[in-house]
């Protein structure tokens, strides 16, 4: 499987996650969102960028509980709660946002 980005085919796994996270470019997020009938706004991007920074620092995609807490710390309590994050990413903030960010599925996600 794969997705077309800037005329190149990037390989994805059976659940749609990028196989090689180094191939990620910002366009990946938009194209994946379109496949889910989602239009990305700046609130989505805040979370996507946060996840990429988290991965850069810790080399893992955080579990949803950890993500929620960390977002709260960084972006404020009104964003660090599951209601807000599930509204942005209805398929699950861990799974969906990590996918758009080019990260693997969060460790501990089933």
């Amino acid at each position: 499987m794969g997705i077309e980005v800037n005329g190149k085919t990037l390989e994805t796994d059976e659940e749609g996650y990028l196989t090689n996270l180094n191939e990620w470019v910002p366009e990946v997020a938009g194209i994946m969102a379109k496949l889910d009938d989602t239009e990305l706004n700046e609130n989505h991007w805040e979370v996507i960028n946060f996840l990429r920074e988290y991965y850069e620092e810790y080399q893992i995609a955080p579990a949803v509980r950890v993500l929620t807490k960390a977002i709260g710390k960084k972006l404020g309590k009104d964003k660090g709660n599951s209601k807000y994050l599930y509204e942005l990413f209805p398929y699950g903030p861990g799974k969906q946002a990590c996918k758009y960010a080019g990260l693997p599925k969060p460790t501990g996600c089933v």
Partner: peptide, 14 residues
Amino acid sequence: IKNFSPTYNALGDY
């Protein structure tokens, strides 16, 4: 190969 030692720093978050 992947250096996973930075991941131990995330344990506090967990």
